[in-house]
Simulated assay, not measured.
Amino acid sequence: MNPDYDRIEKAINYLRENFKSQPRLDEVAAHVGLSSYHFQKMFTKWAGVSPKKFLQFISVEYSKHLLKKNRTLFDVSHKTGLSGTGRLHDLFVNIEAMTPGEYKNGGAGLTIHYSFGETPYGKVLIASTEKGVCHTSFIEDDELPETILTQHFPKAELLRDRNEVHDKVLQLFQANLQEKKSIQLHLKGTPFQLKVWKALLEIPAGEVKTYGNLAENIGHPKAYRAVGTAVGQNSIAFIIPCHRVIASTGVIGNYRWGSDRKTAMFGREAAQNKNARLQ
């Protein structure tokens, strides 16, 4: 077996068994016989995230388990090895894009209206709250809206009800993309995700950016991989135009709702741009 993997496996087991004491980087590195520098580099290469981030994921998952049992935030913080409820709050916002209280609440008291519509790119599910559009996605006939919409708000009330907001969304799919239309959004995301999504909204129709371009635009030029992850986590299709992002090689690349659909959207926008210039 690869000796590097042996060390990573040993480190992961150590983190899982000792996360309640929130071990420092040097403690875990010493446990596997490496310097902090080399351990950080090796772990990140193998796991895809830093040891600190991996520890945060473990801590959040355990915290979620306790919150489901209606433990208090103070009790959850203490049992997870965090210094206080403030640390728990920051951890949840950065990892789950919601506060511990919001997770525990599960969307209780929130009403989400949803409906279906047809677009040039297929059937779409549209959902909104009183604050604005909270979800749009391309959907297959056998997919259940309840499964999609309750991922973050399992206790929210879901009503199949098409309203004026949904009509505006469908009009946006059909409209000339040169016409600016304003739609209020109800976004849930970490500060970093919100930065990326805002940068996506600033890409003109018919134009493309690379993940590196987006990383530079938000002031984190080396974070193109994290930008790619944030783009993939966008849950408001088309309105937040993640289809306008391509790989640095020029390849259209993957898309949450299918690469063929991504190509079709970009092609239609590019054609509209060309027609507008010829007029």
Rank of each mutant, 00 (worst) to 15 (best):
N176E: 11
L158N: 10
F192P: 11
H186E: 13
I239P: 02
E269P: 10
L278M: 12
L125A: 06
T72F: 07
Q193S: 12
E202Q: 14
N94G: 13
S248Y: 14
Y121V: 06
V169G: 03
L110G: 04
I139M: 06
L187S: 08
D167R: 15
N70I: 00
S259K: 14
M265Y: 01
E102Y: 02
Q272K: 15
S59G: 08
H78L: 12
A47M: 15
I95Q: 12
T263S: 06
K181T: 08
Y14W: 04
E9K: 08
N2P: 11
A97R: 06
L34D: 02
G84K: 06
G189M: 10
D142Y: 12
H166N: 05
K131D: 09
H113I: 04
K222I: 12
Q279C: 04
Q22L: 08
M265W: 00
L194S: 04
I148L: 15
P191D: 12
R87F: 07
L110T: 14
V165Y: 00
I239A: 03
K123Y: 13
N13P: 00
N217E: 11
G81M: 09
K195L: 14
V227H: 01
R24M: 14
V49K: 15
G267E: 07
N13H: 12
A199R: 02
H31N: 12
S235P: 02
K68P: 01
Y37A: 13
L200A: 02
M98L: 13
L34P: 04
A226C: 05
L73T: 00
G107A: 08
A29Q: 01
N254F: 06
K188S: 11
E143S: 10
D161Q: 13
A226I: 03
I58A: 07
T119A: 04
L55N: 02
I246W: 07
S128A: 15
C242K: 05
Y211Q: 02
L110F: 03
G84Y: 13
S248N: 11
K53I: 09
M265F: 01
N275K: 14
